[in-house]
């Protein structure tokens, strides 16, 4: 039986969200996986809070059904931080004992990816920015980093890595 994948990322907010989903479904098929289908309402941009919550509950049920979560951890509306739903879903996936792959184009540590000034703050014993705000030690927050396999690249690179792990028996 094919391993089932849950897609965690902001794609559903794109104008061509369904097209992008189909492209990713095709990639999953290519590497021997099944991409779980979101509930249709996930694509609605305007809705009531109650309906939105009902959709979130359906998505959590969908995640319970999957074997693997592929998470898009690229920066989103911020610097050095992924999309809020992705971080939340990675924590959920870890609690549900799912295998998690996160992908991003640049896997250098946060401090190196930061475009501003950095220095070491002795009192805080960590690297900080101009405002003495500290950085995570790795490419992602510690909890995301150590709960997932980080892949440098795009969605296909993550799927490819999952397929390699499956072949090696690491995903059984």
């Amino acid at each position: 039986m094919k391993k089932k994948i849950y897609l965690s990322g902001p794609d559903r907010l794109l104008k061509n969200a369904k097209e992008v989903f189909e492209q990713k479904r095709a990639l999953c098929e290519k590497y021997g996986f099944e991409l779980l289908e979101y509930p249709e309402e996930v694509y609605k941009i305007k809705d009531t809070f109650e309906n939105s919550r009902a959709v979130a509950e359906k998505r959590m049920e969908l995640m319970k059904e999957c074997d693997i979560v592929i998470a898009d951890t690229r920066d989103f509306r911020s610097y050095l931080e992924p999309y809020s739903e992705v971080a939340l879903e990675m924590g959920m996936a870890y609690a549900l004992e799912k295998k998690i792959y996160s992908y991003m184009p640049d896997t250098r540590v946060c401090c190196e990816r930061y475009s501003g000034e950095t220095h070491y703050n002795e009192a805080m014993a960590q690297m900080v920015d101009e405002n003495d705000v500290g950085f995570e030690p790795g490419p992602l927050n510690l909890m995301l980093e150590f709960s997932s396999t980080i892949v440098k690249g795009d969605f296909e690179d993550a799927i490819k890595k999952a397929a390699e792990d499956l072949q090696k028996g690491d995903l059984n």
Partner: peptide
């Protein structure tokens, strides 16, 4: 908000863990 228009990802990871359980 943390480093932009999103909450801190580590905080969300931990929150998601509790929600799922």
């Amino acid at each position: 908000d943390w480093r932009g228009h999103e909450p801190d990802s580590g905080t969300l990871w931990e929150l998601g863990w509790y929600v799922a359980l």
